[in-house]
Amino acid sequence: MNTILETRALCRTFGAVIAANSLDVRIEQSEVVGVIGSNGAGKTTFINMVTGYLSPSSGEILFEGRSILGHAPRRITRMGMARSFQVAQLFPELTVLDNLVCALIGAEGAHPSFLKPARSPARIAACDAILAEFGVEHLRDDPVRAVPQGARKLIDIAMAMVGRPRMLLLDEPTSGVSVEEKFALMDTVMAAVRRHGVTVLFVEHDMEIVERYVSRILAFYSGKIIADGPPAAVMADERVRELVIGHHTRPAGSRRRSAQP
């Protein structure tokens, strides 16, 4: 197997808070990895560091064997690692189609043309195909601000997929999505991901989602990885049960949705 993403002794502190404490992570190609952990365990910090938004205090990050330490997010995105966001990061006043067009322009090159039209027939066709793939084609001409939460998360992920990344980081793809919608959303996303052979790492609070879709779990606790392995093994781990999932197992479906902002 080929390692696509690797971090070595990755550390990050915010004042006295240690958000990442010597993280050693290896993600192999075509894996689907779930990251679990309570609020403040350092999950989002990990994604922010790996994608260049935050610079680590120390450590090394390798993407496809090359160091990406100190690279800006746009450069890392161009190298083939894209991400989605806890709160969908879209362009609210633009239509759904135009949001996708922007993503496509970004995917085509770092310096968009000042004279060639943005909405070329080829681009529109490509965007329509992506909208259909993610099941949001009916919202095509609506401004994003008028689009429901669940669809926003899908559009957010669709925009990350437009650049045909080889690795995709999803930050809580189902947060803010209703219980009824979340499996459908994940099915759609995972189908697209599999079709394009993308390696996925996603942060998720919902254990049902994690158990259903991932091949491996990383459990974070207070900036450290306390368990790493197949879902069944990690979920059975004593420390994970105590520190991440909580002592009492709640019946399926009644778990409160993540309240993390």
């Binding site: 450069r75 995105t77 879209l90 362009f91 609210p92 968009p112």
Partner: peptide
């Protein structure tokens, strides 16, 4: 609308 997203689309 959203500079951070533009950055994450690979643009400056």
């Amino acid at each position: 609308e959203n500079e951070i997203r533009v950055e994450y689309l690979g643009l400056s």
